[in-house]
Design a protein around this nucleic acid. Sequence first.
DNA 1: TCGCTACGAGACGGTACAGTACTGTTATGG
DNA 2: CCATAACAGTACTGTACCGTCTCGTAGCGA
Lengths: 192, 192
Amino acid sequence: MDPRVARTRQAVLDTATELLVEGGPSALTMDAVVARSGVAKSTLYRHWETRDALVADVFDACAPALDLPEGDVPCEEALRAMARGLARSMADEQWNRLAPALILLSRQHPELADIDSEMKQRQHELTEAILRRGVEDGVVETSVLDDVNRTIALLAGPVIFAGLSAMTPVDDDLADRCVDQFLAGQRATLST
Amino acid sequence: MDPRVARTRQAVLDTATELLVEGGPSALTMDAVVARSGVAKSTLYRHWETRDALVADVFDACAPALDLPEGDVPCEEALRAMARGLARSMADEQWNRLAPALILLSRQHPELADIDSEMKQRQHELTEAILRRGVEDGVVETSVLDDVNRTIALLAGPVIFAGLSAMTPVDDDLADRCVDQFLAGQRATLST
DNA sequence: TCGCTACGAGACGGTACAGTACTGTTATGG
DNA sequence: CCATAACAGTACTGTACCGTCTCGTAGCGA
C-alpha cells in the first residue's frame, strides 16, 4: 500500500476525530478538516466520497472493541471483566464524547445505525455466552436468557448511564458494584 | 396577555419540537419552523432573539417534571414510584428523542447545560430525600448518601440506558426490577 | 370605534458549507 | 531514472441557513 495514502488517511481521521470530540457533529466539516490537517480538499474527496462517509469512518475507527479474554473463567469473574471493560470504554475521553453523538445520529443516519447495531449485537453475544455459563453453574436464574437485552440493561446500565451523564466517575469500583448488585438480585430471586 | 402572543408561541414551540424530534438538532432551522408553522420569520424573531434561544425553550418545555407524591411513604415504595416515573419519561416518544440531543448539546451549549444540570440537581434532591428515609428505616446502608449520584446510577441507570439504547422496552416491569436489584444489593452488604 | 401592537409576507445580505474542477508539484514503485 | 498516481492549492458553483429589514394587514383592548 502506498505510504502516502496511509499517511493521508490517518491524518484526516485523527483531525476529524478531534473536531468531532471537541465540537460535536456540526464541527466536523470538510473545510475544517482541510484547514487543520493540511490535507487538500481534493485529496479528501479522493478518499471519502461524502462528508457522511468520513463521519461514519470516524465512529468506526473509535468504537471500542468489546472483547473478552475467552477462557472457561467462572461467570462472576467474566461479568466483572466485562463491566470493567465497559467502564474503561466509557471513561475514555474520546469515546465518552462520541457515544452520545452516535446515539443521536443513529436515528437519522443508516450507516451509523449499522455501526450502533453491530456493537449491540456484539454485546449481546458476549453477554449471552457469559450468562449461559452462569445458568449452568446456578449463579443466575434461567430467565436472564429470555431477554438478554434487558439483562444487559440491568447489569451494565449503571456504567453506561454514569458515562453518559457524567454525574459520577466511571471506574472499576462502579463496575464491581454493578456486578455485585446484579448477582445479589439474582441470588434473591433464586432463593425464593 | 395578548392571545395572539400565546397562540404564536405555542404554534412555534409545537412545530419546533416536531422538527427536533423528527430530524434532530440540525433539522430545527428557523426557515423550517417558518415553513411548517405558518408563523412569519419576523414574528419568530420577535419572540426569540436567536435560534439557540428557541432550541433551549423547546428542551425546557419538554423536560420531564421529576416530581414525586410527597407523603411519608416507605423508602421502597418511593423508590419504586421514582423508577416508574423515570421509565414513563424515557418511554415518552418525544423525550426519548430529545434526551440524547440534550446530552450531546449540553457539552457545547451553556444554556442547555443549565437545563441539564437543573434536572440532575432535582433528581439528586429527590433521591437523597428518599434514601435518607431508607437509612433511617435500615433498608439501605448509610454509604449510599456519601455519593448520591453514584447511587442514582446504580439505581436508575438501567432505566435510562434502556431508554437511550432502545435495546429493551422501558416499562414498569423494568423499573421494578431495578429497584428490586438495588435493594437486594443493599441487603447483601447490610447483612455482612 | 380607534390606536396600538402583533402579525404575514418576503426580499435581502452575509456567511458557512458541500462538492467539483483544474493546475502544478512531489513522492513512490518499478 | 521515469511513468504514474497521489498530493497541495485554490477558485468556483450552488445551496442552506441566520438574522435584518420594510411594508401592509389584522386582531386586540380600552
